[in-house]
C-alpha cells in the first residue's frame, strides 16, 4: 500500500534534513506506527506521503500512485487526519462534514453518523468555532473517515484528548483496521503504538532506527530485564536489572543471597523502555 525508498526532506533546502534517507513498506491491511519524539520527522513524512509537502528525493508510492505525479483522484481512496485540527469555524459540525463529503467521487458516510461515532452527538448544529480543541480534533478525525478510505493517515490521533475520549478513538481505529483499512499512524505515545500497530518504526532525528512488531521487540528486549522486590532494613526496595549484564547478574545473585526477596520476575519492557534502550533517548 505504501512503499518508501530513500526519502529525505529539507524544509528550506538548507541541508538541514527533517527526514534523512528513510525507507519502509506498509502492506495492505497493516497498521503501521511511526513512533518518535516530537520533532523527529513524523508529520513531515506524513506530509510527503499525502502530497501536502513536495517530495524532493527518493521514490514513494502510495495506494498505487507515484507521489511525484499529481493525481488527485487518488484521494478517493485516502483519508487524512491532521495533528492540528483544521475545520471551518463558521460552519457547524454537520456543515463541515457535508461540505467535505461532496468533494469526493466515491460514496461517502452520513455526517451525523460520524459525529455520533466520535461522541459529538447533539453538537451537529453547533459551529466548530465554538468547539473546544479536543472537539475540533474529533471532528477532524471524523472527517478523515468520510470517504471510507482504504488507506488512512492519522497524525497523533489521540494527542490532547482526555482518556475516555482517547479510548473511543482507539476503538474506532481498531475496528476500522480490523476490517481491512490500511493505517499509517504517527504518535509519540508508546501505548497507542503498542495497542494499535502491527509494526512500529522508531524514528529519531529524521532517521528510522528500527522497524519491527511490538511483540518481537518486547521478546527481544523485554526478557532481558528482571525486576526484584526485596526487604532491606525493613523497607521494600525494587530494582530492575538486566539479565545479560554481568555486573547486574552478580547483583541479582547478591540480592538473593543477602536479602529477603519478596517477588522476582522477568519484566516485559514497555515500548518506551525499548525506545530508550535502542535510541538512548526518551519519547517525551
Amino acid at each position: 500500500m505504501i512503499s518508501v525508498k530513500n526519502l529525505s526532506h529539507s524544509y528550506n533546502n538548507d541541508g538541514i534534513l527533517a527526514i534523512n534517507n528513510i525507507s519502509f513498506d506498509v502492506a495492505k491491511g497493516e497498521t503501521f506506527g511511526f513512533l518518535g519524539p516530537s520533532g523527529s520527522g513524523k508529520s513531515t513524512t506524513q506530509g510527503i506521503l499525502t502530497g501536502l509537502l513536495k517530495q524532493q528525493t527518493g521514490k514513494v508510492s502510495v495506494a498505487g500512485y507515484d507521489t511525484m505525479k499529481v493525481q488527485n483522484e487518488r484521494f478517493n481512496k485516502i483519508g487524512v487526519s491532521f495533528e492540528q485540527s483544521n475545520v471551518y469555524s463558521k460552519l457547524t459540525a454537520r456543515e463541515n462534514l457535508k461540505f467535505y463529503a461532496k468533494l469526493f467521487d466515491v460514496p461517502t458516510r452520513d455526517p451525523d453518523e460520524l459525529i455520533r461515532l466520535v461522541g459529538l452527538e447533539g453538537k451537529e448544529k453547533v459551529r466548530a468555532g465554538e468547539f473546544s480543541k479536543g472537539m475540533k480534533h474529533r471532528l477532524t478525525f471524523a472527517r478523515s473517515m468520510i470517504n471510507n478510505p482504504e488507506l488512512w493517515f492519522l497524525d497523533e490521533p489521540t494527542t490532547g484528548l482526555d482518556p475516555t475520549i482517547a479510548a473511543t478513538i482507539k476503538d474506532i481505529i481498531r475496528e476500522r483496521t480490523a476490517s481491512g483499512t490500511t493505517c499509517f499512524l504517527t504518535t509519540h505515545n508508546m501505548y497507542i503504538a503498542d495497542e494499535l500497530c502491527d509494526r512500529v518504526a522508531f524514528i529519531i532525528d529524521g532517521e528510522i532506527v528500527l522497524i519491527d512488531t511490538p511483540k518481537k521487540l518486547k521478546l527481544q528486549y523485554g526478557q532481558k530485564l528482571a525486576e526484584i522486590e526485596y526487604f532491606k532494613d525493613g523497607k521494600l526496595i525494587t530494582e530492575t536489572l538486566k539479565t545479560i549484564d554481568n555486573a547486574d547478574k552478580s547483583r541479582i545473585a547478591d540480592i538473593i543471597k543477602n536479602y529477603d526477596v519478596q517477588t522476582m520476575h522477568t519484566k516485559e519492557a514497555t515500548l518506551e523502555e525499548i525506545f530508550i534502550q535502542v535510541t538512548g533517548r526518551g519519547l517525551a
Binding site: R74, V80, F82, F104
Partner: peptide, 18 residues
C-alpha cells in the same frame, strides 16, 4: 484568509479537488 488561518486548505488538498 479563512482557508489559510484555519488551515483547511490542507484538508482540501487531500481530496480529489484539483
Amino acid at each position: 484568509v479563512e482557508e489559510k488561518t484555519e488551515n483547511t486548505i490542507n484538508a482540501i488538498n487531500v481530496t480529489p479537488v484539483s
